[in-house]
């Protein structure tokens, strides 16, 4: 594809009749390997709520596990903080999702079927269970009542949490967008690691350093795992993955790495001694993990926008495996 075939995909917003060509439309059409550089796929119609939800859902899911594990070690302070953080994130999450809908008043249509082929449908059910359980547990903790019910609610949210934190990786991977679908092996792991990091970081902000050891370990381990997995994914994606270094996705990706690394370093080095460092480090890691979700989100838009990612990766597949999509006379 030559360069001058691409600018036309930016036509939206330009006044009609202002498109200019370096050469005749016939010359362009003769060499064309895409339709005037226009996208083959549609970019997602999702708005800012979705990547934000990927973050809050991750915080909610991993916090539930952290809370229960801390409770088992008798670390009540950490357990309670993680419970409240998780419940808050679980309360915000459905609101974000409903706000993103084209028809918010129809949000409950998500729950009129159970559909294993739809990650968004199963995710809605997981969120319903997780959100219901964690908020029941947090409410009863506040009131100090109905201990058996609270324990049951905690158990449910502990089991639902990891599903909530990782299904969003499948959600984006189960699309035709090359950078998302080709990253399907790593995305649930990346989202899980990122969720663990942000839950640990959030808890280190709200718990006195003397009780926040597990939260800091979680934040640091999560950042390391997420960074390594991200590298592994980019390596395997090859050219399709280049969008992580370009445009907005590139900026978010860079910010994610810098913020998370700085935050994790601060937590590891000074988090035990200084409360200020713990709060600052935790905030930096959370910001980094939020940027990571934005990087993945924006990368999908960029991957859908340029037809070369679809054409080149599918052409490679055709050359390797042969194709059934086209039937040519000489092949029959």
């Amino acid at each position: 594809m030559s360069e001058q075939l691409h600018p036309l995909s930016d036509l939206n917003g330009k006044p009609p009749g202002t498109t200019s060509w370096d050469r005749s439309i016939t010359e362009a059409g003769t060499d064309m390997r895409s339709y005037y550089g226009r996208p083959i796929l549609k970019e997602p119609v999702w708005t800012w709520e979705i990547p934000t939800y990927f973050f809050t859902g991750g915080v909610a899911g991993a916090s539930a596990v952290l809370s229960t594990a801390a409770k088992l070690t008798g670390n009540e302070r950490l357990s309670r903080a993680a419970l409240y953080i998780g419940a808050t994130a679980d309360l915000v999450s459905p609101l974000l999702l409903i706000s993103d809908l084209g028809r918010p008043e129809r949000f409950h249509h998500m729950l009129r079927v159970v559909k294993v082929t739809s990650p968004m449908n199963l995710g809605s059910w997981v969120l319903l269970v997780s959100s219901g359980a964690s908020n029941t547990a947090a409410g009863l903790e506040l009131l100090g009542r109905l201990k058996p019910v609270k324990l049951l609610a905690e158990a449910v949210s502990t089991l639902a949490g990891p599903l909530l934190a990782t299904y969003t990786g499948v959600l984006v991977a189960d699309t035709a967008i090359p950078v998302w679908h080709e990253g399907r092996h790593e995305l649930p792991w990346i989202f899980g690691a990122s969720a663990a990091a942000s839950a640990g970081a959030a808890a280190s902000m709200f718990v006195p350093p003397g009780d926040a050891g597990p939260a800091r370990r979680l934040a640091v381990a999560g950042v390391l795992a997420e960074g390594a997995l991200m590298q592994a994914m980019e390596l395997r994606l090859g050219k399709v993955g280049e969008v992580y270094h370009q445009g907005e996705a590139g900026k978010f990706s860079w910010a994610a790495k810098g913020l998370a690394a700085a935050g994790a370093t601060l937590l590891a080095k000074r988090g035990r001694k200084s409360r200020t460092s713990a709060v600052l480090g935790g905030a930096l890691v959370c910001a980094g993990e939020l940027c990571l979700r934005w990087a993945v989100y924006k990368a999908g838009f960029q991957s859908a926008r340029d037809p070369k990612y679809v054409v080149e990766s599918q052409r490679r597949r055709v050359e390797q495996d042969g194709t059934k999509a086209t039937t040519k006379p000489d092949e029959r």
Partner: peptide, 13 residues
Amino acid sequence: NGCGYCVPACPFG
């Protein structure tokens, strides 16, 4: 309800 999931799922846009 306008969730938009089908939009990037379609391989033909």
